[in-house]
Amino acid sequence: MAKPFLSVERLTQKFPDGAGGALTVFENATFGVEKGEFVCILGHSGCGKSTIMNVLAGLAEPTTGGVIMDGTEVSGPSLDRGVVFQNYSLLPWLSALKNVTFGVRARYQDWSKTKVEKHAKEFLAMVGLEGDVVYRKPSQLSGGMRQRVSIARAFANHPKLLLLDEPFGALDALTRGTIQEELLKIWGKTEQTVFMITHDIDEAILLADRILLMTNGPFARVAESVEITIPRPRNRTEIVEHPNYYAIRNHLVQFLGQHSKDLAGQENSGENNAPETVRIDMTQEAPEEEDASPHLRAVND
C-alpha cells in the first residue's frame, strides 16, 4: 500500500499526571492526508488535537510514534510546514506587510527586497487586504484582519503542509464566515495541503474534503474519517441545500454527542488503529451507510 503524502503513525502522547503516573492523552493515533487535500479534525477539548498539531508542526515531540511527510520523517519545525495559530501570532512591532515579508524573506532568502514585497502584497490582496491597511500594525487591525494577515503569511510561504490551529476560534460568527470564504478562495488558487483543527461542525463541512473524528480523552484516538461528499466550489448559503449536508452534519453531531463518549477510555490494542472510513452520499441510489441512518434525526438530538 502506497503511503499517503502525510502519514501519521501510531502517535502516542503521555504527560505526567502530577501524581507520579502518566496520563495518556491519545494513543496510537494513525491517519494519512493526501497531497492537496483539506482535512479537518474534530473532537472535544482535551482529546489532544492541539498536541497532534504541535507534533505535526515539529514544536512538540510525541512520546512514541512518528510523522512521515513526503517520504521524510518530521523532526523539529520547518518551513515546509506552515502554521496559523489561533491567536494569530503576529509580531506586534511589525506592520501587516512586514509580518508577511518576515516569512517570505525566511523562505526565499535570495529574493530581492522588491520581489519579496510584491509577493507579500499579492498574498495579502488574496485575503482582501489591500492599500494602506497593509502598513498598519496588528494592534490597529481588527481580529479578523489579523487572522487574514496570519493566513497570508502562511500561504505566501508555499509550505508543503499548512497547519491551521482553530484559526477562527476567537472571531465572531460574521467575520468567521467571510474569512472562511477567503480561506477557500486562497486554498483553491494554491492547491495547498491543509490540516485544520476546529470546534465548529459547519465550518468543517464547508471547508474540508475529509473530517477526522477523535474520541474523548484520555486514550483518545482518531476513530472515523468522514468524507464530505459535497461538490466544490462550495459556499455557505448553498451547501445547506445539498441533500448530503444534513446527513453528514447529523452523523457528526451524533458522533460528538454520543459515540465519542462511548468510545472514550478504551485502551485499544493498536492492531486496528486506522480510522474507519465513512461515506455518506444521499445522491446515489443505494446509500451504503454503516451507521444507523442519522439523517432523519433532529439536529439538536
Binding site: L59, P77, R81, V83, F85, F102, A106, R107, N157
Partner: peptide, 8 residues
C-alpha cells in the same frame, strides 16, 4: 514559535 516555524 513563529521564529522556529520559519527556521530562523
Amino acid at each position: 514559535n513563529v521564529a522556529r516555524t520559519h527556521e530562523l
